[in-house]
Each structure stands twice: as structure tokens, then as C-alpha cells.
Design a protein around this nucleic acid. Structure first.
Length: 662
RNA sequence: GCUGCUGUAGCUCAGUGGUAGAGCGCGUCAUUGGUAAUGACGAGGUCGGGAGUUCAAUCCUCCCCAGCAGCACCA
């Protein structure tokens, strides 16, 4: 007999080999029906897997949503694989986990046909529904590793065989049978049968390439994605969320709101239109106030430097593949012959600002009294990113960082990092973001001694601990292996209005670059010392941050950031004169305002400016003109507020003032 | 960079082996209206670029470029 303890503390003596399903049945028929899996000593397991020792047991039902979704998605993935093999014999299966909103399965299409495409999805979905309708039992079986490898090899499943062969020798491996005709190697757990899934709760969404084991050098497989839920209602809600997210897409809003454009002759670099650049200018002004107040000095450094300088900084060796290089010569102007000789020295566009800031630091002799020295630049950088990585404003080839480097003594690091935490906190809150902080620890490939890494990691961790931010509610987490090759990183991950996260801010403590570029200061002792260099950014880049803001606000910018803050719209042309007066007064008060005296109906104007997401529409007709008032209709509300022009100016001026100086 | 898909008017998209169409937008005229589309008329396109097949290519084939989704990358 074994002793099974339930969550309420009661215990039952049952025979070895009893299953959680048996226990559920013994407790009551309702639970027996509702239970879909079990947690045995905290581990999620099949409800039909026999218990073989004393254990804590919790029965899982669909009310335990996270567990239930995990199980369902995992099952959907298996059924997807079974369906694909059923429809396309010769397809090899590899690996198919659950994801945040569903599942995918990586398969290798048979050589007789090309990779799978979207056109294949309806048939696969139909087949999956047939498998669910057949209510095939899902049965766990333990196999010896060697037997399993042989099974895979006989079935022509070379990926599975390769994988099984790499699992520890002698280990027992579990497989799951779907009925008696299909099986997959899997740790489980699964539901008891395919019929437990709701056939209306999933949808295959797309097909894409993915490398076997995530390695570019391996064969590329077809990855079939699906979204999967417990019921149709959840699925529909999810599809609606996707639609909402698509409506916020910054590429679409950027075009609709005439903020910027991209075109193929300059792919990966942004053409900022007047409206978009107004947002940029507001952010720049905001950031300048922030860094001025925090004791930074702003600089501007060269866009192009000699390759030898990049050799010395280490970028030429490590980063050249992503750099734009330029021959330092006058191009051949004859029509005959090559444009360049190929013999000139190379220069390169800067991919980052750090070396230039060290060069400024090195001018003149620095004393310990000069430290910490905080050098800031709106630094325009170019990186030749892989083409497939480019994405709207989020990943571009030319971008401007709000970049600063703090040169300081070792004993100043913690204080500086803490001050940065406070500054970042203020900025992110003023834009309405919540955030989490993560510490990216040393990667496998790195410069510097373990002792230095210990020190650097501890400094960053200490600073966050002292700032009181290293807590679960700030999402504190340490990420092994994710640091840069020269330094650990603190990363700020923002959560936007619809719950997506974006990594933007960072601070890194670097002892490598000051060494390579020979930066030093004279200490109290009269000797030369190496400063530590803190790399830091809050927006990350203006391009990306604006992209995030567009999606965060869904284009409805707060008034201080809105490119056009108000439009004065007339009802009849008789009010044109008054409208121009109102516009002039608002302009004089510093409001970005336009007047709309076009020969159009007010309905049309209301619609157009609403769609354009103008925060305030000031409607004026003869009534307003006679009384010296305006009727304000604000974005997001249907009603209007009648107020005097002075009241309107006061309100708009307040809203148009950036939050940091309000 | 890899796999798949896409590229037609300013935008969103339809379409065909015999050199193109809609809606919105734009222009002109009429209309002067009270809070999400007034009406009429009109102008706009080497159908991403190049090569090939064909009597004939926007359509079929190949190459290139860019975009989209994912992968890989993002020191």
C-alpha cells in the first residue's frame, strides 16, 4: 500500500499501481469526469499513470486553466503531427511543443514534395478534427532507448532517431500512442484521449521555416503553427486580440498618420515625415531635459572613422560583418574603369558610439575629480543587419540611440547604476509603461577573467537590490549566458498597453573597452588608473521607441506628443474669420494647431480628424463666433464641451506641456 | 542569410496570354451644413526590375530587388 495525500490534507491508503483517475473516481463521479490530469508531488502527469510511491496528489481540472491549456496545446501538437503524417506519408516528425498561445510542430516534408504551405492547412485542420472526433485513446508506454532508436530508424524517422540517440544511455523513454496506429516520443503528460479536445478551439495559423535544433547549419524544416484553446470562446477572444494588435501595428499607423515611410532604395532606413519628426523632436527635447538634470554632458561625434580605429576598439574583428565600410578615396569619374581602385584605406560608418566617447574622454588628462564623467549623445549609428531581421521601425539599419557612457571609479559604480535605475523609472512611468528588470549574466564566449565577471555581476545586482527593484513585482530575473561578450547587462523590459513586452533600456559595466583604448585618469595617489565605463540607454533608439509608443498608444498620443494637437474646424464659411483668430491665439500659446475651413460638412471634418487621431477638435460656427467660445470634441469621447477661448487655451496648454515640466 | 508567401493608381485591393478595373484619396464645379463619409464630373498606372518562351507577356519560366510571416542573427 502507498499513502496519497490530497491538497486538503486528507490522506488515502491505496494499492500500488492505483491511478489518479481511480482516486478521482473514488472521491466522486463529478470529479472523475472533470479531472484531466494530475499533479504528483508538483509534477504534471497523466491521470492514468499509475502511482508507485507515497505522494502528494492534486487533481487537475479545466478550471486549472494554465495546466489545462498546456495539456490541450501539447495534445494539439501531437494531433497535428499525426494528421500531417496521415495526409502526407513519408513526412518526418521532429519536435512539437506548446507555445504562449498554441502550439507548433516541426516536420520535414517528404522529398517528393516541397515544404508545406498555407494551402495545406485547411486539409490538415480537417484531418485533425477527424482524429479528435475518433476519440482515440492516448496511452503512455515506456520503451528502452535502444529499442526506440531502432523503431525510429525502421520508420525512416532520422531526426527522431538522432535525438533519441543523444538521450542518456540506458534511460527509459516514454512514448505516447494515439490509438494503436500512431506514436510519438514524448515526456508527456497528455489527456486520456483525443476526444477531450474541443475541435472548434484551434486554428492553424501559418507555416514557416525553422532549423533543426535551431541551428542555421542544420536542415530547415517546415514549422506549422497553430493557436489552441480550451473552447471556441477562448479561441475567438484570442483571434480578436490579434486583430486589435494588428490595428496598432506601427507600420500601418505610421502610414495612416503620415508619420514616416520606408522604401526599397533605402531599406532599413526611415524617411521621417513632418508629423513623425515632431514626435521625435519632442522626445529629443524630453531626453535632453532628463540628462541635463542628471548631470550628463551632451556631445556629437563623427559618423565615419578610419578602420584602424575600429581595429583598435575590437569592432573590426568582432563586428565587421555588420558594418558599412567606405573606401577613403575620390571615386573614378571616367565612364571607363571601376569606380574605386580597391587600394584605398577603409573607413567605416559607426555601428555604435562607445569608441568615440572614449576618444573624447582621452582628450586632455582626466583626474579622479572629473569622475564620474557622463557623456551623452543622440548617436546616429548604422548596422548592416541581416535583411530578414529588418522590421518597420523596430529593427532598422540606421538608428539614433539615446546613448551615454559614464566613466567612473569602481567605488562609484553602484551609485551610478542606482541613479540610472531612478532615471529610467521616472522616464518609463511618464510614458505609462510598467517594466521588469533582468540581469543578463556572462556568456560562454567572453573577454576578461572570472574574477572580473564576478565583480561586475555583483555590482549590477547590488545596485538593483539597493534600489529596491530586485523583487518579483519588478519582474527581477537573472538570465544566464545572455550578457554581452565584454560585460553583464541590466535590461529593462517594458510592458505596453496590451501586455506585450519590449526590451529597450540597458546599462552595462565595461572594463574591456577602456583597456583596449587606453583610457585612464589620475587618482588621488598620483598614479594612472583605468576608469570603468557604463554603457547605458533608456529609449534604446528613437526609431524603435517611437515604434513602441505608436503601438502602446495605438496612435492616440498624449497631447504633448501628438503631432497635431488640435484642429479648429468651421461649420460654415461665415465662421472662417473667427476660426483663424482662434487658431492664431492657440498658436501663440504654443499649441500645434491647424484650422480646417474647407468647404466640407462638419460631419465629414469630425470623421476625418477623428480617424487622424487628433486629440482635440475645436468646432466653431456662428454661435461660437458670436459668444467668443469653442465647442471642443476630444478624441475618444462623443460629447462636446463648450468653453470660452481662454478656458480652452488654458486646458490645451496644460495638456500640451510635457509631463516632466508640468 | 534560410524557408514560404507577396509586389497592379497616393492607399486598400480585384483581374486577364491580345498593353487594365473598383472603393477611398486627389482636382474642378455645385452645395454653407451643428458633431464619424453631400452630389456630379474629372485626372492618375512601362502591372517591382531584368532576361527568356510566344505572333503577342502584367499574366508562363528563370534571375535579381524589396516587403510580409517565421527561423537564425541582434557583440
Amino acid at each position: 500500500m502507498i499513502r496519497i495525500t490530497l491538497p486538503d490534507g486528507t490522506a488515502r491508503e491505496v494499492a500500488r499501481g492505483t491511478t489518479p483517475a481511480d482516486i478521482a473516481a473514488a472521491i466522486g463521479p463529478g470529479l472523475a469526469k472533470a479531472a484531466i490530469a494530475a499533479r504528483v508531488d508538483g509534477e504534471l502527469r497523466d491521470i492514468t499513470r499509475p502511482l508507485d510511491a507515497d505522494a502528494q496528489l492534486a487533481l487537475v481540472t479545466s478550471r486549472d486553466e494554465a495546466d489545462a491549456l498546456e495539456l490541450a496545446r501539447h495534445d494539439f501538437a501531437h494531433i497535428l503531427a499525426e494528421a500531417v503524417q496521415g495526409l502526407f506519408p513519408g513526412t518526418q516528425i521532429t519536435f512539437g511543443p506548446s507555445t504562449d498561445d498554441g502550439f507548433y510542430y516541426d516536420v520535414m516534408a517528404p522529398a517528393s514534395r516541397g515544404p508545406f504551405t498555407m494551402d495545406d492547412l485547411p486539409a490538415i485542420e480537417e484531418k485533425m478534427r477527424a482524429i479528435i472526433a475518433a476519440d482515440k485513446p492516448l496511452r503512455r508506454e515506456v520503451m528502452a532507448r535502444d529499442a526506440l532508436i531502432a523503431t525510429w530508424q525502421n520508420a525512416g524517422e532520422s531526426f527522431k532517431a538522432e535525438w533519441a540517440a543523444e538521450l542518456p544511455e540506458g534511460e527509459e523513454l516514454s512514448v505516447y500512442w494515439s490509438g494503436n496506429d500512431w506514436m510519438d516520443m514524448c515526456r508527456g503528460p497528455h489527456l486520456t484521449s483525443t476526444g477531450k479536445l474541443d475541435p472548434a478551439a484551434f486554428k492553424l495559423t501559418r507555416v514557416a521555416g525553422a532549423y533543426w535544433r535551431g541551428d542555421q547549419n542544420n536542415p530547415q524544416l517546415s514549422r506549422i503553427y497553430g493557436t489552441g484553446w480550451l473552447n471556441k470562446k477562448q479561441l475567438d477572444a484570442h483571434l480578436l486580440r490579434l486583430e486589435e494588435a494588428a490595428k496598432r501595428d506601427h507600420r500601418r499607423l505610421g502610414q495612416d498618420m503620415d508619420l514616416f515611410h520606408l522604401q526599397q532604395e533605402a531599406h532599413g532606413s526611415v524617411f521621417w515625415h513632418p508629423n513623425g519628426y515632431l514626435i521625435w523632436r519632442e522626445l529629443e527635447a524630453y531626453m535632453r531635459r532628463a540628462i541635463d538634470g542628471a548631470g550628463y554632458k551632451e556631445v556629437k561625434t563623427p559618423q565615419v572613422m578610419d578602420a584602424r580605429q575600429w581595429e583598435q576598439s575590437g569592432h573590426w574583428g568582432k563586428y565587421r560583418a555588420n558594418m558599412f565600410v567606405i573606401p577613403d578615396e575620390v571615386p573614378n569619374v571616367d565612364d571607363e574603369g571601376p569606380v574605386i581602385s580597391g587600394e584605398a584605406d577603409w573607413m567605416a560608418l559607426k555601428p555604435m558610439n562607445c569608441p568615440a566617447h572614449v576618444l573624447i574622454f582621452r582628450q586632455g588628462i582626466k583626474s579622479y575629480r572629473d569622475l564620474p564623467l557622463r557623456i551623452y549623445e543622440n548617436g546616429c549609428c548604422h548596422r548592416n543587419e541581416p535583411h530578414g531581421a529588418l522590421h518597420g521601425l523596430m529593427r532598422v539599419r540606421q538608428f539614433t540611440q539615446d546613448d551615454a557612457h559614464i566613466f567612473c571609479r569602481e567605488d562609484q559604480i553602484v551609485e551610478e547604476v542606482q541613479a540610472f535605475c531612478a532615471l529610467a523609472d521616472r522616464v518609463y512611468k511618464e510614458f505609462g509603461f510598467t517594466y521588469s528588470i533582468k540581469l543578463a549574466l556572462r556568456p560562454d564566449q567572453r573577454f576578461g577573467s572570472d574574477a572580473d565577471w564576478d565583480k561586475a555581476e555583483n555590482e549590477l545586482r547590488d545596485a538593483v537590490v539597493r534600489a529596491g527593484l530586485a523583487t518579483p513585482e519588478f519582474g527581477w530575473e537573472e538570465l544566464p549566458g545572455e550578457g554581452a561578450f565584454y560585460a553583464p547587462k541590466l535590461e529593462w523590459h517594458l510592458t505596453d498597453a496590451i501586455g506585450r513586452t519590449w526590451q529597450v533600456g540597458t546599462i552595462q559595466s565595461d572594463r574591456v573597452l577602456p583597456e583596449r583604448l587606453d583610457a585612464s585618469y589620475v587618482g588621488e595617489d598620483g598614479a594612472r588608473h583605468r576608469p570603468v565605463m557604463l554603457h547605458r540607454a533608456i529609449f534604446g533608439s528613437y526609431e524603435r521607441f517611437i515604434g513602441i509608443l505608436i503601438e502602446h498608444y495605438a496612435g492616440r498620443f498624449p497631447v504633448w506628443l501628438a503631432p497635431v494637437q488640435a484642429v479648429v474646424a468651421t461649420i460654415t464659411s461665415e465662421a472662417d474669420g473667427y476660426a483663424h483668430d482662434v487658431t492664431a491665439k492657440l498658436k501663440a500659446a504654443g499649441i500645434r494647431v491647424e484650422s480646417d475651413t474647407r468647404n466640407e460638412k462638419i460631419n465629414y471634418k469630425v470623421r476625418e480628424h477623428s480617424v487622424a487621431k487628433v486629440p482635440h477638435l475645436l468646432v466653431v460656427g456662428m454661435r461660437e463666433a458670436e459668444e467668443g467660445k469653442v465647442a471642443i470634441r476630444s478624441l475618444g469621447s462623443d460629447g462636446q464641451r463648450i468653453m470660452t477661448l481662454d478656458e480652452a487655451i488654458a486646458m490645451l496648454s496644460h495638456e500640451a506641456t510635457p509631463p516632466d515640466i508640468r
